[in-house]
Design a protein around this nucleic acid. Structure first.
Lengths: 184, 184, 184, 184
DNA sequence: AATGAATGAGTCTTCATTCAT
DNA sequence: CATGAATGAAGACTCATTCAT
């Protein structure tokens, strides 16, 4: 089936790009890892590697949106949802191998001086912030407050992930909700 | 002069790695940009690209430590120093080209599954956090508080830089001190 | 056609390795001589030069087995076959250029501290000795005698070729059958 | 002392060339193994690698002549001397590492399409054969017989060494005297 | 006499992509 | 749709040699 092959490629690419970055992964690595023959790629992604990278980033983004929802939907307060999100990410960090960074950064920012990559990363990051904003509003925060907190959450999650990666220790991520909710 | 060639290579490499990541930059790019002939590199960096990357990261780290000092030394309070630091980074972001990310992440985390890279990035990040901690202590914070705030500063700066990069807008960085000092 | 390109590479490589040894021949020499573009090689020989060398050695070995058969099949006695073989080799030496050595030695023994190379050369040499042994048996020698003579033939041919190469004179090879059949 | 450094280089080069051939050994390998600084080489061997190779071959040749003398001087008959020589070579083979081939072939024949190399190898091989011839004459053989046997000895030793190398087993060398003295 | 920095052509290999089937 | 062969530019790295000190 077509969709299956295409999805498998995007999913595999996302996983590998996350570990080693856009330029650190060769098409042959992806093909081998996905067990897809060489010639197939260009049927599904006509522009080749860049198309695949965009698809992989969208794939990872959908995953992230799902995680955000899973964290916030059952939450009674913003603080609860936010905390759960960090713990979920920490768990993900441990499961996925401690070399992994933010998939979108790894795919779209690191690697390739490509305007479309940058724009897409901006849209994706905004969609994450908007999703958190929506949950925050739903949980009672004012629109301005919600947006500010969502942005901050994004920033801290992103930076915390880097530190966790450098230290190979997801505890960094688990410590951040406390700081976020109490301020400095 | 020897030091000159070696330093020029490290400096050039740092600049390019910051823009396009470790794997995104070829040795030939660095050599061309530094106007150094091909064979010279391996005199100064016997292990080649990886050695050069470590030197480049150390180079960038010293620069960062200098910026931290420049921000905190004249400051009367921790809040002042922290705010200045973010503004300095925002200015740097504008000057250096908006494609630039954290040099150490770009060099040592993105790119190459290399244990020594990871360890070095950890040490470098720790040295930044320690330097900020020292300034915070000097400015009157308790040791525990100082360390916590320094870590948070690092995390927010790192994440903020990513967002700024995605948005191609350094204002993100300038907005963060307010959030940091007031809490959420 | 696939087989054509692959065979052309193996054949060309065998020829060049024979003249200048494994390490003395660059891939670019082979590619240029075979008029095959650079990227093609790794389709046919995924491990690159070492794979190509193994294929070239096997190629040369098949050629040698054919020469052995050509010499012994029409022979009435072992001595006749052996003598014909040395004369055929002398002729080959003259035809192929007097710089040529034993292809298998030049490819697999000289060059590269590679266990698989050594093992392959052993198997190949054994296959030559076995083939001569079979002919000798067929021509009436006892099994033990046949094997001993075949080994000696191999040794003398190998050493004689070296001397011929040093002297640039195939007569050395033509003198050896007399010595071999009469003893010392 | 000058001679010491020069000899050390020649000796080290001979050892390495014997294992991996002229083209298989880099100048840096030799320099590192001999613990001689890079710039020194061209004082002692003005033409660089080729000069060094010639010196290394002469060095190895003198060693071989010494071994021939050691084998034949105490011998009562040609057969005794010849047998001792093969056993000495077998022992040498075991001591030096089973990857080693004939030093002169490895240096001067394999490697470099160089007329002077070829000529030198011819002279060296001739000098070995002449030395054996002299011993044979001294031990009572006629001049013609002596020369023929010496040549045959050379050929069988050379070929036997190759087989021993392929099989990683010096017994091949120890079996040859019997074949040589009894004929086939 | 001795040295280590400098050099650029050379090494083998992998890259992303196109093409004919 | 699917495929594996073909492609040559680019990848990192090593080479033997020269030169100023």
């Amino acid at each position: 089936m077509n969709g299956s092959t295409k999805d498998k490629l995007a999913w595999t690419a996302a996983k590998l790009f996350q570990e080693r970055g856009y330029d650190g992964v060769g098409l042959s690595d992806i093909l081998k890892s996905a067990r897809v023959p060489k010639g197939s790629l260009y049927h599904h992604f006509r522009q080749g590697k860049s198309d695949l990278a965009l698809a992989a980033a969208q794939f990872a983004s959908r995953e992230m949106l799902r995680i955000i929802d899973d964290a916030f939907l059952p939450a009674k307060t913003y603080k609860d949802g936010m905390t759960t999100l960090f713990f979920k990410c920490a768990k993900l960090f441990d499961l996925m191998g401690k070399w992994n960074g933010c998939p979108v950064s790894g795919i779209l920012l690191n690697g390739a001086y490509n305007p479309m990559f940058r724009e897409t990363s901006e849209h994706i990051f905004d969609s994450w912030i908007e999703r958190v904003t929506a949950h925050a509003t739903r949980l009672g925060l004012s629109e301005n407050d919600a947006k500010e907190r969502a942005t901050h959450l994004f920033v801290v999650l992103q930076g915390g992930w880097d530190l966790a990666r450098a230290r190979q220790n997801s505890d960094e991520l688990r410590r951040l909700p406390k700081l976020l909710s109490e301020g400095l």
